[in-house]
Design a protein around this nucleic acid. Structure first.
Lengths: 183, 183
DNA sequence: TCGTATCTGGAGGAATATACTCCGCTTTGT
DNA sequence: ACAAAGCGGAGTATATTCCTCCAGATACGA
């Protein structure tokens, strides 16, 4: 695979993730190509139909989720720190999109990797609970859904950079709150 | 104005708010009518063009924001409680939509009511800070943007009722976190 | 109860957006 | 330098969306 082809494929995947998070649904084909800054034909060459694009996005985000979860554990001293690191990385790289894509695809994706990703997140939550960084009543589901919430843009005409700063601040507050709420 | 006309108008406004929050942008005219459970002609009779619909939505949500802010103050003993009450009410009634609608409309709306709404929210934040329920570094903007975040649906095929429960739980955590983060 | 002014729903056609293909030109790797 | 692989965008068919019109239903005063 040629270098420019790989570069364009990457751009298309990133554009698709962005749009999916913005729209909360399937983006228009043309919009993906335009956002990626490539021609329409390039999109169709890499992903002949919408299904394949979505599947590729799911796989990509899934893998990045697993990766990010592991490096978060490796590079952190405490469970709380690891969870926090992961959640902030999720904002920066749009990991919340996994769940949305899976909702779009139904269940026709990669069960094994999905399980792996859920497992990683589960470990992060458990570890954080052992440290007392978050309450025992906190569920994995709630945390997973939080990633979606903080990944999705606000749909106001805000500057993306400014928007990310805000998302990070709000995420910090949310995580601080999880510690208090033992419920 | 006849009773059924008023009822349909109300339904249309509610449907528009829902869709705006889901899509993060202008909903299709037909979609609004369909969501409201009324015919397309009914939509056009009440709101001859998109602009008027959006303006009506803005006015409606703005008024409800001001109302809700005041009753939150009246019915609460502490500033922290008032803010919490308001934020939860925002989730239930989609008050976060105000900001999105204003982004869609540009600045061609009601400056006076917008100011009033911002004022109400400002008072809520201030009062909460005086009580120490939230940190001094917390800005009104951040809180306003939080209402959008917690009002917008997650775009997974979740049951609306379940989704609201989750939003409330996450909102509680966020508010708890605001107390900790004095920053 | 009845008459009527008001309101409603959806079919239908113009305008617009979206999905997809083809082909001449550019870039990459050897 | 030269294939081979890749790229962009014009162009067409298809699906959505927008908006109007009118026959029938509904609320409310007499």
């Amino acid at each position: 695979m040629r270098a420019d082809a790989r570069r364009n494929r990457r751009r298309l995947l990133d554009a698709a993730v962005e749009l999916i998070l913005e729209l909360g649904g399937e983006p228009a084909r043309d919009a993906v190509a335009h956002r990626a800054g490539v021609g329409i034909a390039t999109l169709y060459r890499h992903f002949p139909d919408q299904q394949r694009l979505l599947r590729a996005v799911a796989l990509d985000v899934l893998d990045r989720t697993i990766d990010e979860g592991r490096t978060a554990v490796d590079k952190s001293d405490t469970g709380g720190e690891a969870l926090r690191r992961y959640m902030h990385a999720a904002i920066d790289t749009g990991l919340g999109a996994v769940n949305v894509v899976h909702a779009l695809l139904g269940s026709t994706t990669w069960p094994d990797r999905l399980a792996a990703a859920q497992d990683v997140l589960g470990r992060l939550v458990e570890a954080a609970q052992r440290d007392g960084a978050i309450g025992d009543g906190v569920t994995v589901t709630e945390v997973a859904l939080a990633t979606i919430r903080f990944c999705r843009p606000l749909a106001i005409g805000l500057d993306p950079a400014e928007e990310r700063v805000i998302a990070h601040r709000q995420m910090d507050c949310y995580l601080d709150g999880l510690a208090v709420s033992v419920k």
